[in-house]
């Protein structure tokens, strides 16, 4: 044996060097993504403050850390729909690290489908990792009332927005229809005014209350 060769005949033995670089890139990308998220949240917070409002991360719950709370929104499953992802065989119970599928930041685990993911989020393992008790504080009547008023307001706002939208749509449609009518009128008139010798519309003037001379 003369000298060690890389798998592809490279002179240098470090055939894993490219891989290290790749890892570094991936981590850099991950970090950038995290920064981006933080930046976005910061921006939202700032904008809310500028508008004189309190920034609430997601609409539903007061910011208690310890108690387990309900999910604030539907899990974003739609993002994954229609994407083909390669998933390692037997990745059923969650795979360490971030890869294709549903990723849990707190536990650094990836799940191959949303059901396994949600089951994980409900699991003791995950609750411990996120410092939650798995216990839910009972709501008082006042909290229920407050929540109801909030939801009622929210629905009214949505309705109002829809009405505005509808109003705008009607207006736009009306303007569009008006333009179309005008165009038709123009064409009709042009046709009507076209003389037999084909000299066209410019020779005919409309004067004196529409009497054609």
């Amino acid at each position: 044996m003369s000298e060690r060769k890389g798998a592809y005949g490279a002179k240098s033995a470090s055939d894993t060097s490219f891989r290290k670089t790749w890892d570094r890139e991936e981590y850099a990308a991950k970090a950038a993504e995290r920064d981006q998220k933080a930046k976005e949240e910061g921006k939202a917070r700032h904008e809310a403050a500028a508008a004189g409002k309190k920034y609430i991360r997601r609409a539903s719950t007061p910011e208690d850390a310890k108690d387990t709370e309900a999910r604030k929104a539907r899990l974003n499953v739609a993002d994954q729909v229609g994407k083909t992802q390669l998933v390692a065989a037997g990745a059923g119970q969650g795979k360490r690290g971030k890869s294709a599928g549903f990723y849990c930041d707190a536990c650094d685990l990836t799940f191959k489908d949303n059901l396994q993911f949600v089951e994980h989020l409900n699991s003791r393992q995950h609750l411990v990792a996120t410092g939650e008790s798995g216990e839910v504080r009972r709501a008082t009547l006042d909290e229920v009332k407050e929540r109801f008023e909030y939801l009622k307001r929210k629905r009214e706002e949505e309705k109002a927005r829809e009405t505005v939208d509808l109003g705008t749509r009607i207006q736009v449609a009306a303007e569009q229809a008006e333009r179309e009518r005008e165009e038709k009128r123009r064409k009709r008139n042009e046709k009507r005014r076209k003389t037999k010798d084909g000299k066209g519309v410019e020779e005919i003037k409309v004067e004196n209350d529409g009497i054609i001379c």
Binding site: A70, V118, N122, V144, R147
Partner: peptide, 12 residues
């Protein structure tokens, strides 16, 4: 599993 986990009488 997704929508009922962790609800109380207010978040319900």
């Amino acid at each position: 599993k997704e929508q009922c986990f962790g609800l109380n009488a207010a978040t319900l």
